[in-house]
Design a protein around this nucleic acid. Structure first.
Length: 302
DNA sequence: TTCCGGTGGT
DNA sequence: ACCACCGGAA
């Protein structure tokens, strides 16, 4: 269940003090500008923190405002997204920028309902922006933070998602939502890891039911559970997402606006598979196709 | 080779 | 309730 208020305050202090001295120096933490925070969260969803920080630095320099991103062509944005994966999210982020300009006067909105209506923004990202940029007392529950809170604050009870969110919101230290969010991410990455947790050095060790339980279990129990229900996974090169990646790389390398013809196989994908992938990419608004269905390019207009 | 993860679509 | 999307880390 929940933690006694006095203990809760001690735990908050332990986390924040640890963070004050051990925070990872990530570029996007030096700002609370809402647009910068939104971009950093979208990038960080798919990329580990250190790499995300590099990518964010480049991206935010190129598109420092919603207006800057919204007025760029999809092709420009997809090229800027190279190497980050999930290219549809780049297109969604651009659409979000346009919505911010058109519907919110160019400013990132500061309510959950408005944020979550933006393309590519779900409950996690909406709350992360509220907490980090606007310092609102909400918990941004990604899997790492959820795990930290579940282990150290909530204990073993499996609390249904709604109730968990409500509990987690209540654990946010007054006035410190922004630091709290970053701090829990670092605790999750440094100590409270899904595999091989390092409870011994964790700032929450003294308070954490999971840590004491883990010690007991480790002392008495032997090997963990079972291998796997494994199924033969297809070779990566035979997947459609690999094919999409190769197509997009070719298009990124082509001069802006130049049509590129796809009339042969790629890897072990035959022409039909290639054309199907082009159709998918067109439906996802990543590329435009000409009437032949063979010639394509990154979208120059949105 | 397997695993990881928010969002959105089914 | 699942799965596709992506690249990188373990």
């Amino acid at each position: 269940m929940s933690v006694a208020p006095a203990v809760q305050a001690e735990m908050q202090t332990a986390v924040l003090e640890w963070y004050g001295e051990n925070a990872r120096d990530l570029a996007f933490r030096r700002t609370t500008d809402p647009w910068s925070v939104l971009v950093s969260e979208v990038i960080a969803q798919q990329t580990q923190a250190a790499r995300a920080a590099e990518a964010w630095t480049r991206f935010i320099a190129q598109f420092p405002t919603p207006a800057a991103l919204g007025s760029a062509s999809p092709a420009t944005v997809i090229r800027a997204w190279r190497g980050l994966g999930y290219d549809r999210r780049a297109v969604a982020l651009r659409a979000a920028a346009i919505a911010i300009v058109d519907d919110h006067g160019g400013r990132v909105p500061d309510t959950f309902d408005e944020l979550v209506r933006l393309p590519g923004v779900g409950p996690y990202t909406a709350r992360a922006v509220l907490a980090i940029a606007f310092n609102r007392p909400v918990a941004a529950l990604d899997t790492n933070i959820r795990r930290v809170l579940a282990r150290a604050f909530v204990g073993d009870d499996d609390v249904p998602p709604r109730a968990f969110q409500a509990l987690a919101d209540g654990y946010v230290p007054p006035g410190r939502a922004s630091s709290w969010t970053h701090a829990l991410m670092d605790v999750g990455a440094a100590f409270c890891r899904a595999r091989d947790p390092r409870c011994d050095a964790c700032p929450l060790l003294a308070f954490c039911p999971y840590a004491s339980q883990t010690r007991a279990v480790r002392a008495t129990e032997s090997a963990p559970a079972h291998p796997v229900p494994k199924r033969p996974s297809p070779r990566f090169e035979s997947t459609t997402r690999w094919l999409r990646g190769r197509i997009l790389d070719r298009l990124r390398d082509a001069p802006d606006g130049r049509w590129v013809t796809f009339d042969g196989p790629i890897g072990n994908h035959d022409v039909e598979a290639v054309l199907n992938a082009l159709g998918d990419l067109a439906r996802d608004e990543m590329v435009e196709l000409d009437d032949s269905g063979h010639r394509t390019r990154l979208r120059s207009v949105g």
